[in-house]
């Protein structure tokens, strides 16, 4: 390879850092959406690099559904104290308690949809004007249409048929009062890129991503973690399985995969050989063919 030529991971890193610095320069009150999943962890890592040796000039924002894996919360708190980051936690439980949203009922009850309200309320309360997210275009067909700088109207809504053209590296973050932007610095990364980067940079990730023994049950061909927030049907039986998670979301909508991958290298090998997409184990995407587009229009991540 040419001596003045970047590898694709270096080029992606450089592009993402450019985007993160644009956010810091163009907006008054940005925040980085942090779920404790690998994509937001990579965004955090990139933000540290972008502003070094200064600290990241915006807080982390965690929309806490209360349906978390315990390991995610431990990881989040360790990270915040290790790097002295600012953390804001907004709770879906609070939105339920104050009557902003109503809890879903039944075996498939999830707080996934509810968190959009919590998110938009938090944006309003803190007057955030840009929210950085770890969504990637390769994840899902509606996300494939996203801009780096994605405009949201005063209701937090996305209008996918009328997006601003995004040319060269000129990002138009101009807006009226009450509107905000979602910004996706790792838009051009694939799942494989993310794992390769985590391996290359030796980034710490939650233990959930590595193989472990866990009490699980199977529903609709998906392996669920057994947890209080997911009621079992009479026919469903809990058993110990050797699993890991490819994505981390709510415990009620994240499926596990059978795996014995215990190192980053083994995860990379597994991802390279896999025959299904990572969102194939996300129950939140399965509600309909356009589930993600519909949620995104309303202001979802």
């Amino acid at each position: 390879m040419n001596e003045h030529h970047l590898t694709h991971l270096k080029e992606l890193e450089s592009e993402s850092i450019f985007v993160l610095r644009e956010v810091a320069a163009q907006f008054e009150k940005p925040a980085l959406l942090f779920s404790g999943g690998k994509d937001s962890i990579v965004c955090f890592h990139l933000a540290r690099k972008a502003f070094a040796p200064a600290k990241i000039p915006f807080p982390l924002l965690h929309i806490d559904t209360g349906h978390n894996f315990e390991e995610t919360i431990i990881y989040r708190d360790d990270l915040v104290s290790k790097y002295g980051a600012q953390l804001i936690v907004a709770s879906v439980q609070d939105s339920i308690d104050t009557g902003r949203v109503t809890e879903e009922k039944g075996f498939y009850a999830s707080r996934n949809v509810l968190q959009t309200v919590t998110l938009l309320d938090t944006i309003e309360n803190y007057k955030f004007d840009a929210l950085i997210g770890g969504a990637r275009r390769d994840e899902e067909k509606a996300r494939a249409k996203e801009r780096f700088f994605s405009h949201r109207d005063e209701f937090g809504q996305w209008d996918p048929k009328n997006q601003r053209p995004e040319l060269w590296n000129l990002f138009n973050g101009r807006k009226n009062i009450g509107e905000h932007f979602r910004v996706f610095p790792i838009s051009n990364w694939t799942e494989m890129d993310v794992w390769q980067y985590i391996l290359q940079e030796q980034i710490e990730i939650p233990s959930l991503y590595f193989t472990h023994e866990r009490e699980c049950f199977i529903r609709d061909e998906v392996i669920y973690a057994h947890a209080n927030v997911i009621p079992l049907k009479p026919t469903e039986k809990v058993e110990k399985m050797q699993v890991r998670f490819r994505t981390i979301g709510d415990i009620s909508c994240t499926g596990a995969v059978l795996s014995i991958a215990s190192t980053l290298q083994e995860i990379v090998n597994e991802v390279a050989a896999t025959r299904t997409t990572e969102r194939g184990s996300r129950i939140d995407d399965k509600r309909s063919d356009a589930a993600m587009e519909d949620r995104k229009r309303l202001g979802y991540f």
Binding site: K141, N188, D289
Partner: peptide
């Protein structure tokens, strides 16, 4: 084709990025 309207009309409306 990613958007609901694109699948319905069978045309591409917006830039879609693929990897």
């Amino acid at each position: 084709d990613g958007l609901r309207a694109e699948r319905e009309q069978g045309i591409t409306i917006d830039v879609a990025y693929r990897y």
